[in-house]
């Protein structure tokens, strides 16, 4: 009797620990909504999604920052995806077999580097370098895209590599046996077979780029205006929240939470998309090899 009751109790306790993630998510969503209500009530959605940010005059538009987020994310993916896919193909198909583990570990090392360290490096080396080459301030979308590319490479590489490795080797053998070259095999057999995994990898990389804060904050500018070129200062949603949360109150503070809510919804939409693409497999990234 005691054993049965203990078993029942343990199962309930474990269930509670498992429900913490659900509860945590609910709390995060609840407080983001709750804290942004004043902004929606007093400023109104039209004001919040306008392109003018001037809290002194009661303008709380976040369009500039949304554009900044989308532009830097797109830039990071455009620069990072080819490198990451090339690297994934290299690690699974081309690299000498004995050195594959070593190269894999190199990429994983990149994933472990704290974003603040990458940001500091961007601020001390990348931005002055762009400034010299372009004659502008140096910070802006270009610098942020380069830093983000470095950050998405490990994510996209690791997941694409796993997807390519999951393609049965008989597919490649059949293709090679019919006389196809290695590139023909990659392009016509292995890439199409790993399509879903690679797409999931890119979506996850996109999520990482959208949410990245510190590394972008040190190279983006900052300035609350639309960028006029790739090397003119601007802001993203994350950097705006980071830099103004400390010294804002009232509707301005609430509008920063509204930006947090937008970020949250973007992230959740990407995860929903990713779960659909990868066929219900867990979308939580692994930390252990």
């Amino acid at each position: 009797m005691y054993v049965i009751r203990r078993e029942w109790l343990v199962k309930r306790v474990l269930l509670v620990t498992a429900m913490v993630v659900v509860l945590g998510l609910a709390l995060v969503v609840y407080f983001m909504v709750k804290e942004s209500i004043p902004a929606f009530k007093q400023a109104g959605p039209a004001n919040l999604f306008s392109s003018e940010w001037a809290p002194g005059e009661g303008r709380y538009g976040m369009l500039i920052f949304l554009v900044g987020t989308l532009a830097t994310t797109a830039g990071g993916l455009i620069l990072g995806t080819p490198l990451a896919l090339g690297l994934a193909l290299f690690l699974t198909q081309v690299a000498p077999r004995r050195s594959r583990a070593l190269f894999s570990r190199g990429v994983e090392t990149l994933a472990g580097i704290p974003s603040i360290v990458l940001g500091w490096l961007g601020f001390t080396i990348l931005v002055p370098w762009i400034r010299e080459l372009s004659g502008s301030s140096g910070s802006g979308i270009l610098a942020a895209s380069i830093v983000l590319a470095v950050m998405v490479i490990p994510t996209i590489t690791a997941i694409s590599r796993d997807a390519l490795e999951a393609v049965p080797s008989t597919y490649a053998q059949a293709s090679l046996a019919m006389g196809a070259t290695r590139w023909q095999t990659i392009r016509r057999v292995q890439l199409p077979a790993a399509k879903h995994g690679i797409l999931a990898a890119i979506i996850l990389g996109m999520g990482r780029a959208i949410g990245e804060t510190m590394a972008v904050a040190m190279v983006i500018g900052p300035a609350s205006v639309f960028p006029t070129s790739l090397t003119s200062p601007t802001h993203t949603l994350t950097t705006k929240i980071l830099m103004e949360m400390g010294e804002s109150t009232g509707v301005q503070r609430s509008s920063l939470f509204a930006m947090g809510l937008v970020l949250l919804m973007l992230a959740m939409a990407l995860i929903a998309l990713m779960r659909r693409v990868s066929g219900g497999r867990s979308a939580t990234p692994e930390v252990v090899e």
Binding site: T213, I271, S282
Partner: peptide, 24 residues
């Protein structure tokens, strides 16, 4: 439900966690 919670929570940007932690 738990899987959905974990996946979604893992996608939340860290700055959102930051302001959530500040409020709560």
């Amino acid at each position: 439900l738990v899987r959905f919670g974990a996946d979604s929570l893992s996608a939340v940007p860290s700055v959102v966690f930051g302001i959530f932690g500040m409020v709560v």
